[in-house]
């Protein structure tokens, strides 16, 4: 596949999702969509993962869990919010226990809309996340190179 250059490893966390986007994310791994053919591997270990997929909005109790997962991931990392709840809170945004979308807690790079997001949309989201991952990687390399050059010149 030409549109994904790397094999991104993903980790999935279910915030306060209704399970809809959750099972659609899982459906991506099953024969009909089979993202493993694109090199995408679902891992349970945050240290192995490049991309964090979050479904559902965030509440007081799941926010620290999300932070812990995010902080454990190695740099560079990309956060993908899946589904309307993860984007803005959706129908639940006025609930007393919902903080809002994932971007109230983490810096989100890609938003995948849909209620529930279709597997195709999730594949698109992961592809977009790969682009951003590559950009972040290039950016970091560039920074390192300039730092080295400054050091050598100075």
């Amino acid at each position: 596949m030409s549109f994904i250059k790397k094999s991104p490893w993903i980790i999935h966390y279910d915030g306060t999702s209704c399970n809809g986007c959750d099972i659609e994310t899982l459906a991506c791994l099953t024969p009909l969509y089979d993202v493993e053919r694109l090199g995408v591997v679902n891992t349970g270990n945050p240290k192995h993962a490049d991309i964090l997929l979050v479904t559902g909005s965030v509440n007081e109790q799941s926010a620290p869990v999300l932070w812990q997962i995010y902080n454990q991931m190695a740099n560079p990392k990309v956060v993908v919010a899946i589904g309307i709840c993860a984007l803005s809170g959706g129908v639940f945004k006025e609930c007393y226990n919902v903080k809002g979308g994932v971007d109230t807690v983490l810096p989100v790079d890609v938003y995948v809309p849909g209620c529930a997001a279709r597997p195709e949309a999730i594949i698109d989201g992961v592809a977009k996340a790969c682009e951003i991952l590559q950009q972040k990687l290039d950016h970091e390399r560039e920074k390192k190179r300039t730092r080295k050059a400054v050091k050598n010149n100075g």
Binding site: G90, V91, K93, G101, V112, C115, A117, A121
Partner: peptide
């Protein structure tokens, strides 16, 4: 678009029928 849950309740409610549902989803956004 990031808040719409595609329930199509607005489509049913519109008295002038100027709202409709398209089958494609909103593309991914940054």
């Amino acid at each position: 678009r990031a808040g719409c849950v595609q329930c199509s309740n607005c489509v049913d409610a519109c008295p002038k029928k100027c709202l409709s549902m398209g089958p494609e989803y909103t593309p991914v956004m940054t």
